[in-house]
Computed example of a mutant assay.
Amino acid sequence: MPYSWTSPAPSPDSQVLRLWPHQSLPPKGYAAFILGTFSLVLIPLFTLLGSVLLWGILPFVLLAIGGVWYALDRSHRNAQILEVLTLTGERAHLVRHDPKGTVQEWDCNRYWAEPRMHETDGPVPHYVTLKGAGREVEIGAFLSEEERVALYHDLVRALRR
């Protein structure tokens, strides 16, 4: 699961939930994929060594490799999202760190914090939100459908304590 609950040591009654998008391609896999793609694309070019055609095809091959590199890098940067929900005895505090570096915060009295699941009304199926303090904020929209359902049930249990 791309989220985890922890309890800070000084305050055992508080809980911290950290959520992040699933990263299916680790850094070593990223490097291996780029190297493998580059190697496989170079194989047909060996037949063109010493030919004028090599210089006509080489820029397009390098452009294709650069495009794959850019797309993977952009995908990795867009997945740099972190949401942290801190539940203390009286407060519920949600902080979202976006890939662009912006930080969004939501704070509410824990008693009034209410998790909601919008099964079909949200931008994704089983859309989970937290409502309180006159606002409704999304949480875990980047998770898979099964993970959002599990998250909702975890939030209901955690907020009842």
Rank of each mutant, 00 (worst) to 15 (best):
H153E: 15
D121A: 15
R157I: 01
L151G: 06
N78K: 07
L143A: 00
E138H: 12
P8L: 06
R77S: 11
L54A: 00
R135L: 08
V128M: 13
I57E: 07
T6P: 15
H126E: 08
R18T: 08
R74H: 14
L35F: 06
R96P: 00
F46E: 07
V149C: 01
L87A: 01
R74K: 10
H153R: 13
E138N: 14
V95S: 06
Q23D: 15
H93L: 04
I65D: 12
R148L: 11
I34P: 07
A9K: 08
T86E: 15
R157A: 06
S75M: 01
L45K: 08
Y152N: 06
I139A: 09
L151F: 07
W5A: 11
Y152D: 06
A9V: 13
T88D: 14
I139Y: 08
L62I: 04
A92S: 10
P10C: 02
V52T: 08
P21D: 13
P2N: 03
E83N: 14
T86R: 15
T88Q: 11
D73H: 11
G134V: 12
W55Q: 02
F46H: 02
V156G: 05
Y111V: 14
A141N: 13
T88F: 07
E145I: 03
P123T: 11
G134F: 11
Y127E: 00
L53N: 05
Y152L: 11
L45E: 03
A9C: 01
G29C: 07
A92R: 09
E119F: 06
R77W: 08
L40T: 14
N78W: 10
M117L: 15
S4M: 08
K28W: 15
A71H: 05
L155Y: 13
L82M: 10
G134E: 07
V156S: 00
T47F: 07
A133L: 04
E83L: 08
R74M: 10
A92W: 02
L48M: 07
H153Y: 13
Y30S: 08
N78M: 05
F38A: 10
A150N: 13
S7P: 00
W20Y: 14
E138M: 09
S4E: 12
L40A: 12
G89L: 02
L62W: 12
R91N: 09
H76L: 11
V61I: 10
L42G: 09
I57D: 01
V124N: 08
S75P: 08
P21R: 01
P115L: 03
G122D: 03
I81E: 02
V68K: 09
I139W: 05
L143K: 06
T102R: 09
V124Y: 11
R161N: 09
R96F: 11
V68F: 14
A31W: 07
Q104H: 15
L25K: 05
A64K: 02
F33C: 10
D73Q: 03
G67M: 13
E147F: 02
G56L: 00
L85E: 03
R135M: 09
V68E: 14
A79W: 01
W55P: 03
V84S: 12
F142L: 08
F60N: 09
A71V: 04
G50H: 06
H153M: 04
D154H: 13
V52H: 04
R91Q: 15
V16G: 02
A113F: 04
